[in-house]
Structure formats: C-alpha cells, structure tokens
Simulated scan of single mutants.
Amino acid sequence: MSGHARERLNEDFSNPVRLSLMGSLRAVDEADFKTLKETVGISDSVLSRHLSALEAAGYVRIKKGYVGKRPRTWAKLTSSGQEAFAQHVQALKEITGLA
C-alpha cells in the first residue's frame, strides 16, 4: 500500500459516537437499542440518528420486532461494516505506532 495510513481512515467513523457504536457492535453478534444507548452514553435521538447513518452507509443492519408486546430495535454489523471498521482500526494503529 502506498501513502500515509491517514488516507485509509474512514470518514464515516470520524464522529466519536459512530466510532463508539462500531466498536460496541464489533464486540457482540447484535445489540438492542437500550443496551447501545447505555453503553455509549447517548440519548435515544442521537443513537437513532447515528444508527440510521451507519445503516444508510451499509455498515449496520437494523432489525425491528417485539419482545412480548413491547417494540424492540436491534443493530448488527454487516460484513462490509466489519471489514470497513477493521481497516479503519488498522489505520489508526499504524498512525499511533501500535501496529
């Protein structure tokens, strides 16, 4: 690969909330909305906005359903999301000298 590692950073993950969401989802098969909200420490509206952006980019798959009579939303990384995030993290490691 040529060029500096910063050229391989993914702009979709430059926002700290999105970076946190991707990292949280990478650690699990899927996570429900409430768990993500509590893990990242953000409001419902902020979480919804950022999940929608990640879904539109093809990095996250959103699934809606019910547990009993209560509506639930789950999020899961797509395979392209896993790959894009791994490449972003690798570039960060190279930039910081941790690779």
Rank of each mutant, 00 (worst) to 15 (best):
N10G: 00
T39K: 15
T78Q: 11
G23W: 01
S79L: 07
P16V: 01
V40H: 10
V60K: 04
R72S: 10
W74V: 07
L36K: 13
P16L: 06
A91S: 12
D29A: 10
G65Q: 00
K69T: 02
Q87N: 07
L77I: 01
T35R: 14
R8I: 00
S45R: 06
A53P: 01
A5I: 05
S43T: 15
K37Y: 04
L47C: 04
K63Q: 09
N15L: 03
A57Y: 01
V17D: 12
T96W: 11
R72L: 12
E38A: 12
K76V: 09
H88E: 05
L51S: 10
A5H: 09
E7C: 04
A84M: 05
L77E: 02
F85R: 02
L54H: 03
L21N: 11
T39M: 13
T73C: 13
E38P: 01
L47M: 00
N15T: 03
L36Q: 09
A31I: 00
V17A: 10
D32P: 06
S43L: 02
G58W: 04
S20N: 12
S52Q: 07
M1S: 08
L9V: 08
A86V: 07
R49Q: 10
L25Q: 12
K37I: 06
R49G: 00
Y66S: 06
G68L: 04
L9T: 05
V28W: 11
M1R: 01
L21M: 09
A99E: 12
L92R: 11
T78A: 12
V67Q: 08
L19D: 15
S24D: 09
A5P: 10
A99K: 07
E83F: 07
E38G: 08
K37V: 06
D12H: 11
W74Y: 14
R8K: 11
R70E: 13
K69S: 12
A91C: 06
G58F: 08
G3A: 10
G58T: 06
T39L: 13
R61P: 04
A53R: 14
M1C: 04
A56T: 02
R49Y: 14
S14V: 00
A91W: 01
G23H: 09
S14L: 07
V17M: 09
R6A: 14
G41S: 07
S43N: 02
